[in-house]
């Protein structure tokens, strides 16, 4: 019963996230999807993933979305679509039909799944599986987190990149226009410098 309610909650939040006019409301609906999915994962017995999904999906990502929307601001979008309105719906319904046929085929092979479940009954704890069996994944995650930190720096640095360089050049030009004109200094010939230095440092 609870799983049905949580599933409906996740689907309704997902639909509302797409239908919402305001970006901030869409981000909050996405947090609702994350919370519902985390609860479903917890009910499945995947406690570690549920905690990570709740803290990262409903917490960190939502904060980042709110921050990015606050920087960029809302934009009124026109009603013109790239694709005809019914085409995405037809494509999705076609995919649903393919999935239904595939699911029916998978239902026939449920006995094979039961046999394979008996053969693969050597499930270890999460730490052993994650750090020993999937050690390469952990290394990849470290690289990804480093890339994510760079992304956060790009998000936080408003003056970065082309915009920052453009603003700096504009400010530099404005300062040069406003600065007082300095008197022209006549150039000094190089020969006098060389003779002076050779005279000073000669033994």
């Amino acid at each position: 019963m609870w799983s049905i309610l949580l599933s409906l909650l996740a689907l309704i939040c997902g639909i509302q996230a797409i239908r919402a006019k305001q970006l901030l409301a869409a981000a909050l609906w996405l947090a609702g999807v994350s919370a519902a999915v985390a609860t479903l994962l917890y009910s499945l017995g995947a406690y570690e993933v549920a905690v990570i999904e709740l803290s990262v999906g409903a917490g960190l990502v939502t904060v980042l979305f709110v921050f990015a929307i606050a920087i960029a601001g809302e934009e009124a979008m026109s009603a013109r679509l790239i694709l005809p309105r019914l085409l995405p719906l037809l494509l999705v319904l076609g995919l649903l039909a393919v999935l239904a046929v595939g699911g029916r085929q998978a239902g026939v092979n449920s006995e094979m799944l039961a046999v394979s479940r008996g053969q693969l009954a050597t499930d270890q704890d999460f730490a052993t599986t994650h750090w020993q069996e999937r050690g390469l994944d952990a290394l990849v995650q470290i690289g990804l987190i480093f890339a994510g930190v760079m992304g956060v720096l790009g998000l936080l640095t408003e003056q970065a990149g082309f915009v920052g360089a453009k603003r700096n050049s504009e400010e530099l030009g404005r300062n040069q226009e406003n600065s007082p004109q300095l008197p022209q200094v006549p150039p000094v010939p190089l020969s006098s410098h060389s003779s002076l230095s050779s005279h000073e440092f000669s033994p």
Partner: peptide, 28 residues
């Protein structure tokens, strides 16, 4: 369903990390 819940969890954690990084870079 396959009897290896911890393996599924490990893969799911990897996907969550990658997805979060994709979201951060895309937002930037």
């Amino acid at each position: 369903t396959s009897g290896r819940l911890q393996l599924g969890q490990s893969l799911a954690v990897t996907v969550i990390v990658a997805d979060t990084v994709v979201a951060v870079i895309a937002l930037a």
